[in-house]
Simulated scan of single mutants.
Amino acid sequence: MQKFFALAGLLALSPFLLILGVCIKLESKGPIIFSQLRVGEHGRQFKCYKFRSMYLPGSEQWREAEKMKSDREGICQKMYSDPRITKIGRIIRKLSIDELPQLFNVLKGDMALVGPRPHLTTEYVQYSSDTLVRLHCKPGLTGLWQVSGRADTTFEEQLELDKTYIANQSWYFDMKILVATVPAVLMAKGAY
């Protein structure tokens, strides 16, 4: 059923996604979609797709960012005014549009529509043993972490939200999260 909704979403959004792809390509050099290695169900690694929202590594913007300090403490490092992010990138990140290519990950079976945040391999190696429970289900395109503050949450808070989701996982809970995702994305709270 999730694959059906992912395919339907991709087909319905395809004209918008094509236009966005052209805009990304016109603004800066590089691929329209890029992939990052993420950790999924049972610790299996997979390529997680996103629209490219940054200039390419090695650019002047990346050199400028190297001189800056993260605005967040802990494992998940972020800068509120990251010079590596393109103009279009700022918009698509704010509205989580950069994550729409993850519908392909749902089609491939790497991800679900709702689930824990798909963490980077560098984050995964820092898990404590009690955190490994978050790998008992597929990561999600959205999740409890997305509707509970997004990047305003710490790494530890994200892990707790993921564990809460897994402990209470149900069809009804997934529907509540999907419905709550729309206002969370539109308000762009915790997105940068």
Rank of each mutant, 00 (worst) to 15 (best):
F34E: 00
P83S: 10
E60L: 15
L37A: 09
I24A: 07
Q61E: 11
M79W: 07
V22R: 14
L103H: 14
I92S: 03
I33V: 10
K69I: 04
L103Q: 06
K29I: 01
R44F: 06
P57E: 14
E73R: 13
E99N: 07
A65D: 05
F51E: 02
G58C: 10
I97W: 03
E41I: 05
N105F: 06
R52P: 05
C48S: 11
L56W: 13
Q61L: 01
I33S: 01
G43Y: 08
F34Y: 09
I88C: 03
I85A: 08
K67M: 12
K67F: 08
G74F: 02
C76T: 15
M54C: 02
E64G: 03
I85V: 15
F51N: 09
R93Q: 09
S28I: 14
L113R: 12
D98I: 13
I75S: 11
L17G: 08
Q36E: 04
G30I: 00
Y80W: 15
S81H: 11
M54Y: 00
E41C: 12
Q77S: 08
D98P: 08
I24Q: 01
S96E: 00
S53M: 01
Y80F: 15
G40M: 04
S53I: 01
D98E: 11
Q77P: 10
R84T: 03
L17D: 07
L56Q: 10
R52Y: 01
P101D: 10
Y55T: 00
K108A: 14
I24S: 00
K94Q: 06
F46T: 08
C23D: 11
S53E: 00
E60F: 13
R63P: 03
G74L: 10
C23V: 15
S96G: 06
P83Y: 03
L95S: 12
R90Y: 06
I97Q: 14
S59R: 07
L107E: 04
G58S: 05
K29G: 12
G30Q: 07
D71S: 13
L17M: 14
L20N: 11
L37D: 15
G109E: 11
G89S: 11
R38F: 00
I33N: 03
F51K: 00
I19M: 15
R63K: 08
G30E: 02
D110R: 09
Y55P: 00
D71R: 06
K78I: 00
K67P: 14
S53G: 00
G30T: 06
K94D: 07
E41Q: 15
D110S: 08
P15G: 04
I92D: 03
S70R: 14
E99W: 05
I19L: 15
P57N: 06
